[in-house]
């Protein structure tokens, strides 16, 4: 048990964790995790990272992809937003997962991107790779229902448009090439209304 790493409750790690041994996360981890042994995300664990390990057990919350060389287990109370890939995956009742789930033996050209994996699998004439694929559709609706809405960073479009002319002038002065086209932020139909009034 000397090779067990514990991220205690209240601890925050921002960065990469890698190496040989097991890992238990009861705190927060932001950054990728890649260990040779077992990864356990405890009930109070909060992970915003991709987790790669021999066995991945989730009882807390994970935002990121899970890759298990042997297995992935999502216990009751687990919240996962991300893809899961392992030869064996267990999703307990009460666990939430939103993402692409792939079981079966590891495909040689398997990538993290689901679109790339799908397009690669489609043109193959032999169903050699396909039948092993098992998905867990029953958990998907529950995940959608119970998953709290994630705070989406809104892009402040309006202030940028207002300050665009001034910024464009400075850029034009600094650059030798032609200035960036500055499009006045006019509402659609604003000119027409103006003409009509005139």
């Amino acid at each position: 048990m000397s090779n067990v790493t514990v991220i205690g409750e209240g601890a925050v790690v921002r960065g990469r964790i890698q190496g040989e041994g097991d890992l238990a996360i009861a705190g927060r981890v932001e950054g990728d995790v890649e260990v040779s042994g077992e990864i356990v995300v405890e009930v109070k664990g909060l992970v915003a990272a991709n987790l790669t390990g021999q066995r991945v057990v989730v009882r807390g919350a994970v935002r990121g992809d899970l890759v298990g060389a042997e297995s992935i287990e999502l216990d009751a109370g687990a919240r996962v937003v991300g893809d899961a890939r392992a030869p064996r995956i267990r999703v307990a009742p009460g666990a939430l997962i939103r993402g692409f789930v792939t079981t079966g033996p590891r495909e040689p050209g398997a990538t993290k991107s689901r679109t790339a994996a799908a397009s690669a699998a489609r043109p193959a004439p032999k169903p050699a790779v396909a039948p092993k694929k098992v998905e867990a559709p029953q958990s998907a609706p529950a995940a959608k229902k119970a998953e709290p809405p994630k705070p989406v960073a809104k892009i402040p479009a309006k202030p940028a448009a207002k300050s665009a002319p001034a910024r464009g002038a400075t850029i034009a002065g600094a650059r030798p090439g032609p200035p960036a086209p500055v499009v006045p932020a006019l509402r659609k139909g604003a000119k027409a209304v103006h003409k009509k009034r005139a």
Binding site: S2, N3, V4, T5, V6, I7, G8, A11, V12, V13, R14, G15, R16, I17, Q18, G19, E20, G21, D22, L23, G27, G31, V35
Partner: peptide, 13 residues
């Protein structure tokens, strides 16, 4: 918090 032998953390803790 324990950083076990064989484990490397690159970042802030």
């Amino acid at each position: 918090t324990v950083i076990g032998a064989g484990i490397t953390i690159e970042g802030d803790l």
